[in-house]
Design a protein around this nucleic acid. Structure first.
Length: 276
DNA sequence: ACTCGCCTGTCG
DNA sequence: CGACAGGCGAGT
């Protein structure tokens, strides 16, 4: 579910810097959370202050006192909310961190894919090294962007954009949206782009991510993505191609196409986004 | 460089 | 009932 704009919005809405974790309550505790038991997690987190909060790709990272970093990845269906009081667990609540100001950080995740880890500095550096550059860096450096695309010339553009080792933070929605804006076919091989097309792709990625962050992310009709106390993002209204199979392309009227892609879908306009 | 599995929920 | 869902990683 959440891609870079949703993770960024989630992080900004939490405003947890300076708070101290009073208790960690694990409910329907996930095997994807470490330490492996609620008691051990509580022991590891209780009394620690959150002294920093940042995002890397789709990871939410909370710097704690004593040099530890709490890492949260929401995967497909996770949300991280900041709720008042001592919130009760609903059916999908997996973890509640009670804070010192009578609020709580609450992880909800119907599909149980979300991951939580407590990392040492070295473990964080190792994680960081597995991720490609942030789009806001690489897409503003024309030479580096060109070199990076050229280094993976055989790969299709959509697969490449979604590969977190290539660039960190882009997922299914924003890959399709960026490619639509750049008028590039999702299966076009990266090595076949002209210099102008490479530049256009970088500009399209920056544009769509910035607009999506400004709109506080994409909450689809199922309402799965929420942030803060449970607010929805507004970018679904601005999606130009994602999820629009059979509907007219907003640019040329040709019906948008959906093709199977890596167990999911790619949406594109067969007229505006030629494979050539 | 690919597909599949992980899990639950919803929709047709 | 099957298809599909904002992701990733273990397998080929």
């Amino acid at each position: 579910m959440p891609e870079l704009p949703e993770v960024e919005t989630t992080l900004r809405a939490l405003r947890v810097i300076g708070r101290t974790i009073m208790a960690a309550r694990g409910i329907d505790y996930l095997p994807t959370i470490a330490p492996a038991s609620p008691e051990a997690l509580d022991q590891a987190l209780r009394g620690r202050q959150i002294i920093g909060a940042f995002r890397r790709g789709k990871y939410l990272l909370f710097a704690l006192t004593d040099d530890a970093i709490l890492s949260v990845h929401l995967r497909m269906s996770g949300r991280l909310l900041r709720l008042p009081g001592l919130p009760e667990a609903d059916r999908h609540t997996r973890l509640i961190l009670d804070l010192d100001d009578a609020t709580a950080l609450v992880l909800r995740d119907p599909r149980k894919f979300a991951r939580v880890r407590i990392l040492s500095q070295a473990e964080f550096r190792a994680l960081d090294a597995t991720l490609g550059p942030e789009p806001f860096d690489i897409c503003r450096d024309a030479e580096a962007w060109k070199a990076r695309l050229s280094a993976h010339g055989r790969r299709g553009l959509k697969a490449l954009l979604m590969d977190q080792r290539f660039v960190a933070g882009i997922g299914n929605i924003y890959a399709d949206e960026a490619l639509f804006r750049a008028r590039l076919h999702p299966l076009r091989r990266a090595g076949t782009l002209s210099k102008a097309e490479m530049h256009c792709l970088a500009a399209s990625i920056l544009e769509v991510l910035e607009e999506a962050i400004a709109a506080e992310g994409t909450t689809l009709e199922d309402g799965a993505y929420r942030f803060g106390e449970g607010r929805a993002g507004n970018f679904a209204l601005r999606l130009r191609v994602y999820g629009r199979a059979g509907k007219p392309c907003i640019r040329c009227g040709t019906p948008v196409v959906r093709i199977p892609f890596g167990g999911r879908s790619a949406y594109y306009c067969p007229s505006c986004q030629q494979r050539t």
